Amino acid sequence: MSSMQYRNLGRTGLKVSTLSFGAWVTFHNQVDVKDAKLLLTAAREGGMNFFDNAEVYASGRAEEIMGRAITELGWKRSDVVISTKLFWGGPGPNDKGLSRKHIIEGLQASLKRLEMDYVDVLFCHRPDISTPIEETVRAMNYVIDNGWAYYWGTSEWSAQQITEACEVARQLGLIGPVVEQPEYNLFARNKVEVEYLPLYNNYGLGLTTWSPLGSGVLTGKYSQKNIPANTRFTLENYKSMADKLVVDEVVAKVDKLKPIADELQVPLSQMALAWCASNPNVSTIITGATKESQIVENLKALDVIPKLTPDILDRIEAVVQTKPKQPEVHR
Rank of each mutant, 00 (worst) to 15 (best):
A54F: 01
G216Y: 10
P182D: 00
A188K: 13
K112M: 05
I175M: 12
E164A: 07
K37H: 09
V194A: 11
K37T: 13
T131V: 13
K34Q: 12
F123T: 04
Y184T: 03
N185L: 10
D255R: 08
V319S: 05
E105Q: 15
E156T: 12
E55L: 11
S83R: 11
V250R: 14
E135W: 04
A188N: 13
R11K: 15
E236H: 14
L107P: 04
Q30H: 10
T219E: 01
D255Q: 12
F123R: 03
D243M: 12
V319L: 03
L40F: 15
L205V: 10
L122A: 00
Q108G: 09
E156Y: 07
D255W: 02
W24A: 14
S2Y: 11
P259I: 07
L19K: 07
R11L: 06
G90Y: 03
W88P: 00
V266M: 05
A54P: 00
N226W: 06
I227E: 04
G147C: 01
A69W: 03
S110I: 09
T290F: 07
G97W: 11
L299P: 06
P327T: 05
K191S: 07
V217F: 11
I295V: 14
I133N: 02
G220V: 01
S20H: 03
N226D: 05
N185C: 15
L172D: 08
I82A: 10
M4L: 08
T154I: 11
A23N: 03
D314G: 06
A109S: 15
V80E: 12
N202Q: 11
R100W: 02
I133T: 14
G10L: 01
L308Y: 11
C124N: 02
L308P: 12
R170Y: 13
L268M: 10
S283Y: 06
L308Q: 08
E156F: 12
S20K: 02
L205K: 13
